[in-house]
């Protein structure tokens, strides 16, 4: 039978977790459909149809789906589930929100945050903040799987699948109502898929300093901005900048950590980056144990030096 991949999107653009999740799905089946559940999301469906190896794209639209409400998406997916062996979902905040609801409605366990497919029923996933890897076998007939996007290479864009509109399910049948979104607008690349990430930690000391020091360095490098939990908790950076075990997982080509100590919870979100740079005044900070290149000293002089050296 076939696999269903649920697209990661914001109604206007397809998130890059989708192409990576299709790559994971290809290890299970060659018949892959994508569900775009949203509102006014035609452009997203078109983008999904271009992904290589996709059989067809299903487009379901309603206001509740547009707000990515778990109850609505679950109804939509559960109705489609009889046609699929496996349902794969990118492990974004949205995916993590609805995937377990889908699994429980189908009376199966979720196979969470996989980083490798061993066989049709066996997967590898990190546990304990990535300090251990679990190889787990599922005997559930239908598999609901969340996929860690950074662990898979995206499929290409040479495809030309058809887009088929499907029913969205009953509107407003649920007791959860969307009230508002407060989305941080930024011209920088998206954190989860960025090629370079510059992250700031508690050392920055204030939101002003974070803007003044971290953002220009990121802009010079065309990088996304990240932060440690301590920096987010203190209000130096918005919540969706948090990199780590319980924030975003990133694996860019270059990760620059400024004034971050390197707690295991932070490392869990960035230690698969290709090259790691740490700037920290404490030569014994744990971040240096994972850094390829360490600069010991005060960021207040080292970041301007770095800006100058970059030219």
């Amino acid at each position: 039978m076939a696999d269903l991949v649920i697209a990661d999107h914001n109604n206007t653009a397809l998130g890059d977790g989708t192409a990576k999740t299709v790559a994971a799905a290809q290890k299970l089946s060659s018949d892959i459909d994508i569900l775009v559940a949203g509102e006014n999301a035609g452009a997203v469906a078109e983008a999904a149809a271009k992904l290589e190896g996709v059989r067809k794209v299903l487009l379901a639209e309603s206001p509740a789906l547009g707000h990515l409400l778990a109850e609505a998406i679950t109804d939509c997916v559960v109705a489609l589930a009889p046609g699929y062996d496996a349902i794969l979902i990118p492990a974004t905040s949205a995916g993590k929100n609805y995937a377990p609801r889908i699994a429980a409605k189908l009376d199966v366990n979720q196979i969470t945050d996989i980083i490798d497919v061993v066989s049709n029923d066996t997967f590898v996933r990190p546990i304990y903040a990535g300090n251990a890897l679990e190889t787990v076998q599922s005997s559930d007939a239908k598999k609901v799987i969340t996929v860690r996007p950074t662990a898979f290479k995206p499929v290409g864009e040479g495809g030309s699948a058809t887009v088929e509109k499907i029913a969205a399910g009953a509107a407003d049948a649920h007791e959860a109502k969307w009230v508002s979104d407060e989305v941080v607008k930024s011209d920088r690349p998206e954190l989860a898929g960025a090629k370079i990430v510059v992250s700031g930690g508690r050392a920055l000391g204030s939101a002003e300093e974070f803007h003044k020091v971290i953002e220009p360095l990121a802009d010079k490098l065309g990088a996304a901005v990240g932060a440690s939990r301590a920096a987010v908790d203190a209000g130096y950076a918005p919540n969706d900048y948090q990199v780590g075990q319980t924030g975003k997982v990133v694996a860019p080509g270059l990760y620059i950590a400024v004034g971050i100590s390197g707690a295991i919870q932070h490392l869990a979100g960035m230690k698969d980056s290709k090259v790691i740079v740490a700037i920290n005044k404490d030569p014994d900070a744990p971040i240096f144990q994972v850094a390829d290149f360490g600069l010991v000293g005060d960021y207040k002089t080292l970041v301007p030096d770095l800006m100058a050296a970059l030219g």
Partner: peptide, 15 residues
């Protein structure tokens, strides 16, 4: 806390 920022929902109890 969602991708990109914050979302506010109103849910009927029990929830």
């Amino acid at each position: 806390e969602i991708d990109g920022g914050l979302q506010t929902l109103e849910v009927a109890l029990p929830a």
